[in-house]
Structures are given as C-alpha cells and as structure tokens.
Simulated scan of single mutants.
Amino acid sequence: MAREKELSGLRALVTGGTQGIGEAVVGALRAQGAKVLAAARNQGDETELFVGADASTPEGCRTIADAVRDRLGQADILVHVVGGSSAPAGGFAALDDEHWQREIDLNLMSAVRLDRELVPAMIERGSGLVIHVTSIQRQVPLPESTIGYAAAKAALSNYSKALSKEVSPKGVRVMRVSPGWVETSAATAMIGRLAQEADTDTDTARRQLMDSLGGIPYGRPARPEEVADLIAFLASPRAAYLTGAEYVIDGGTVPIA
C-alpha cells in the first residue's frame, strides 16, 4: 500500500542536488511532499528550486544559506550530499597542500559551514534533521587514488557524531549515510575511461573497480535511487527516534571489523 506523503509541509536543502545521489535525493524528498531547494555549481536538469554556488568555499556556503532563508524561510531538513575528489592518483606523495585543502573544503568544510549557518534556527525551534553523506572509504580507503577524500570523509563522520551529541538533546537529529560504490553518471564515465586506458571493455573495468574495493558481495554497485530511498526514510516520521547513527549502504562491501 502506498504511503501518504510523509514530508508534506517540510522544507529541505540538498547540496550537490543536480546530479547523481543528490539529484535522486531531491526527487525522493519531493515525492514525499517536501519543498526542496537544490544547491550545486551547475543547474543540470533542475527546473524548480535551485541555487548556483560552490559549496567548497565560504562564499558559496553563504550564498546557499541566504537562498534557504530567502526562498524557504528556513530548513527543516539539510542533506549534505556534495563531495568528491579531484586529487591525482599516486598515493600520499602525489598530494600537495593544495590538493589536501581542496579535499577537506569540499568533503568536510562544506557541511561544517552550512550547518553553522542553518542549524541554529533548528535549535531555536527545537526540531530539525541534518543528514551527512559520508563514504565507506572512511573505513576502507583506497590509498593509491583517494587518500585525501577518504580522510576528509572520516573527519566528516567524526564531526557528525559530535554534532549529534550536542544538538540531539535540543531536538535536532543528525544522521550519517555511508554509501559504497554508487554507479552515478560520473562513475559510469569513469568506468569508460578506465576501460579505454586499460584497452578492455566496460564490464571488465567495472569488475576490476569492484575488486579494488575488496569485492561487492551483492554483485553490483548501488543505484542513486537506492541511497535516496534510505535518506527519505531517515527524514520521515518513522525514523523519529534515530539520531547519531551511520547507515552503511554498500552491498556488503565493508567487512566485519
């Protein structure tokens, strides 16, 4: 039986909201009745509420926060999806200070700055939800290619737990969602590049990438909509008692610690 729209009347901000997981989250929250502002550098196919800004910069975060206040009034739900890596492969020696700072600004400080702008209003009214999208790489980093990204996501997870301890007693829930490999359009393009570089086919390149993660027992990457459905559930009244936890959605990739 179809559920009624559980998020009707709620207002949400989704960063990185015009592609991949973020785009799917915007769609999932709107399907449940929320009014959603999508923030990203590029508008993509977004035709409803959009703010163009670079969340990796202080100026971009201020632009996004101002748009929330101007266009939503306030946010009941913040979903920080924006993230990624532009650092070169080659392990720790290949990354200079500038590379490290970019990884930290995009994957950690974007959330820190926006929370600082928008969470105080949640505390004042005694309700709200913050969801930070982390990554299984905080536990299983790929040192050859994403060492900076993995370290920043580990910091984001730790920060999220601390924030939860501080604001949950004041009525604001803080959750983490930790995806494994999600086959977004960007990931598909990357597989194509890997296949071309290795002079192989895309199925082989996909399998090699899964192997580099230690394998995915479920046999395939996640779809963006599957991650978005988890986030929509965590935003719903059915998850009202959940806070401070991290939900891994990785097809079984991360081994038992």
Score class of each variant (00 low, 15 high):
149 Y>M: 04
101 Q>I: 00
118 L>N: 06
99 H>W: 03
77 I>G: 00
92 F>M: 08
157 S>Q: 13
153 K>P: 01
71 R>G: 00
60 G>L: 06
74 Q>H: 11
89 A>H: 05
107 N>E: 02
129 L>D: 04
164 S>E: 04
80 H>C: 04
126 G>F: 03
44 G>Y: 11
144 E>S: 03
125 R>Q: 14
79 V>K: 02
72 L>I: 03
98 E>W: 06
159 Y>T: 03
76 D>A: 00
156 L>A: 06
51 V>D: 00
95 L>P: 09
158 N>A: 15
84 G>P: 08
92 F>L: 13
93 A>T: 09
126 G>Y: 06
52 G>M: 10
41 R>P: 12
143 P>A: 03
57 T>N: 10
87 A>L: 07
156 L>M: 08
128 G>E: 07
49 L>H: 14
49 L>A: 14
98 E>N: 04
158 N>G: 13
48 E>R: 15
122 M>E: 11
112 V>P: 13
52 G>R: 11
49 L>D: 12
58 P>E: 02
65 A>Y: 08
129 L>I: 13
131 I>Y: 10
146 T>L: 04
162 A>D: 05
89 A>V: 05
45 D>W: 10
115 D>C: 15
51 V>H: 11
88 P>W: 13
79 V>F: 06
49 L>I: 12
93 A>F: 09
65 A>P: 11
161 K>N: 02
135 S>K: 15
40 A>W: 11
139 Q>V: 02
162 A>T: 13
41 R>G: 08
74 Q>F: 05
84 G>D: 05
165 K>Y: 01
144 E>Q: 05
138 R>E: 00
140 V>R: 15
129 L>Y: 02
130 V>G: 02
75 A>K: 09
78 L>F: 01
122 M>C: 05
108 L>A: 10
48 E>D: 15
155 A>T: 08
74 Q>V: 00
97 D>W: 06
162 A>G: 14
156 L>E: 02
150 A>E: 00
43 Q>T: 13
153 K>C: 00
135 S>C: 10
127 S>A: 06
